[in-house]
Structure formats: C-alpha cells, structure tokens
C-alpha cells in the first residue's frame, strides 16, 4: 500500500504513465528538432504519428507484412512523404512569419486525417501484438506485459540515440550550427536546404515510429493523432524547445505525472498536463529547459 492505494494499482498506472510518456517524449523530440532548424511548429506531427500506425496496419492487412518490417518501412515511408511536402510546399514559407507554417501544417493535418476518416471510418482497427512480444512476465511485485516493457525500452533507446546523433556526430554538429546561423553554415559549403529537408523527414519519421509502436497498444484510428498532438504541444511549452534533452525528459515526466493523477484523482487526469503547463507559465514562462523568452 502506498498512500492508501494498493501497490498493484499504483504500479499499473505508473506503467501506463511511462508508456504515454514514451510517446510524448518521441513526439516532442521530433517537434523540437523540426522547430529548432525550420522554425516551423509541425501541427501535422499528430497526423504523421497516425500515418505510421496506419501504414503498419495496412502492411499487415493487405500485404501480410508483420510488425518488425513495418517498424522500418512505415517511418521510411512517412519520412519520404514528409521530405516531398517540405520540398514542394513547406519550403516556400520559411521567409514568412512562423505562424504561416503552423497554419499550413494544420491544414495538412486536417487533410490527412479527413482522408483516412473518409476511407477507413472513425472507429479504431485492432493491431495484434507481435508474437515474440506477446504475454507478460511476473516481476514479483507486478505483472509486466512484455510489449509494454519493449515500448518503454525501445523509445528510450531511440530518444537517447537521437540525442547522441545530434550532440555527438558530425551531421549533428552541422544541424546545430545551421540552427544557430544558417547563412554562415551555407557559406562553408554545406547544403543547408538539404539539411532542412532531412530534418523534416527525420521528425516525421520519428512521429511515424511512435505510431507503429502505439499500434498494438491503442487502436489504429484516424483520430489518434489529433488527440495526442494538443497534449504534446503542452509538453513542448512546459519543456521549452531550446533543448533536445529537455523535450525528452519533460515528455517522460509529464506522462508519469498523468499516470499518477489517474491513481489519486482520476477526474483530473485529462487536464493535469494543461494545469502543469499553466503553473509553469506562471513561475517560469520560458519553460523548464527553455532558453528563449
């Protein structure tokens, strides 16, 4: 018993919180990377997450291609779509007020979501857990479904891997330099427009990866993206988009906070992240890890 709550229930919600936190972290990481370089808030991030889950489902139901190949194919496909959108349309908006980028990607999100709703209906489609990860293990103090453990571990690896790529590799140093001063970086002979395309594709692919991971846990539904994206925006406001690590840490923290609220005060679990956002705005307007005012 913890604070009058059975330990099982407490740990169960903590686990759900960690799962949600994994998705918040993956999505806010992608948002932060895109915003860092492109100065665009990618409203279509939720739609790209949904696309990832849908690609996995389509691959399985029409081509019999399972979870593991989908984990690679879906992010690549969504990344490619993202690259095409960046090349043909989004690119024209860089010189304008960043608000236009938000509005454009909002329209993009509506279009994608509407199309999938039209084609597949608003109700969710089940996606079976891959056999290798089915079942669960008894940890002694709680029962852990293997797939959920996998999601937490794998998303942690992806988050830290992405952070390492950006902070420790040559490509990452180009990206960071282009964030600070794109004109100077271009004058050194680095192809900045290509870096921008690559960044948007990477962000979209990360969202799609989160979507594939989410497919066996939540149902694959056209609305899954818009439900999560607003929460992720709040996460991003709390974390501040100045730091990649900040986005990751805030994602997990808020996921856990949401899970724990479900234990102690279930009515508020929908809004707890927004409440935390309001409090952070009052105390530290720049966000927990933010540098820009």
């Amino acid at each position: 018993m913890i604070f009058g709550i059975p330990l099982q229930a407490f740990l169960g919600q903590l686990l759900i919180g960690l799962i949600n936190g994994s998705f918040y972290a993956l999505l806010s990481l992608g948002l932060a990377i895109i915003f860092g370089l492109l100065r665009v808030i990618n409203f279509a991030h939720g739609a790209q997450y949904m696309l990832g889950a849908f690609f996995a489902w389509l691959l399985l139901s029409y081509f019999g291609i399972g979870y593991w190949p989908a984990l690679v194919i879906a992010p690549l496909a969504v990344g490619l779509v993202g690259a095409i959108i960046e090349r043909t349309m989004l690119r024209r908006l860089y010189t304008l007020d960043p608000l236009y980028g938000l509005l454009f990607t909002f329209g993009l999100a509506l279009t994608i979501e509407g199309t999938f709703r039209y084609l597949y209906g608003a109700s969710g489609q089940p996606y079976a857990t891959p056999t290798a990860l089915a079942g669960g293990t008894n940890l002694g103090f709680m029962f852990l479904p293997v797939y959920r453990g996998w999601v937490i571990a794998f998303s942690l690896v992806v988050c830290i891997g992405t952070w390492l790529v950006i902070e420790k590799t040559k490509l990452g140093s180009y990206l960071r330099a282009a964030t600070e001063n794109p004109i100077l970086v271009q004058s050194f002979g680095i192809n900045v427009p290509f870096l921008l395309t690559l960044t948007y594709a990477l962000g979209a692919a990360l969202a799609a990866l989160a979507g594939v991971l989410a497919a066996p846990i939540y149902q694959v539904s056209p609305l899954m993206g818009s439900n999560i994206i607003i929460v992720v925006f709040a996460v991003v406001v709390v974390g501040g988009m100045g730091s990649i690590m900040g986005a990751i840490v805030t994602g997990y923290l808020l996921g856990v906070a949401e899970g724990l609220t479900k234990v102690f005060y279930p009515e508020a679990s929908n809004i707890v992240i927004f409440v935390i956002m309001a409090i952070v705005l009052l105390i530290r307007p720049a966000g927990l890890f933010g540098r820009d005012a």
Partner: peptide, 27 residues
C-alpha cells in the same frame, strides 16, 4: 497566461488551455 509567451508559443498555449476548457465542459 498566454501573453507570457510570444509568437508560436502563444498559439500553442491558447490551444492547450482551450482544450482544458473542453475537458471541463465534458465533465
């Protein structure tokens, strides 16, 4: 709350707070 941040953040904060009000209305 929202005017404490500018530009793009302002839009995201208003969206999040309005969503909070939506959940309030739901319950």
């Amino acid at each position: 709350l929202a005017i404490r941040r500018q530009g793009i953040y302002f839009a995201m904060i208003t969206l999040a707070l309005a969503q909070m009000f939506y959940f309030f209305c739901l319950q």
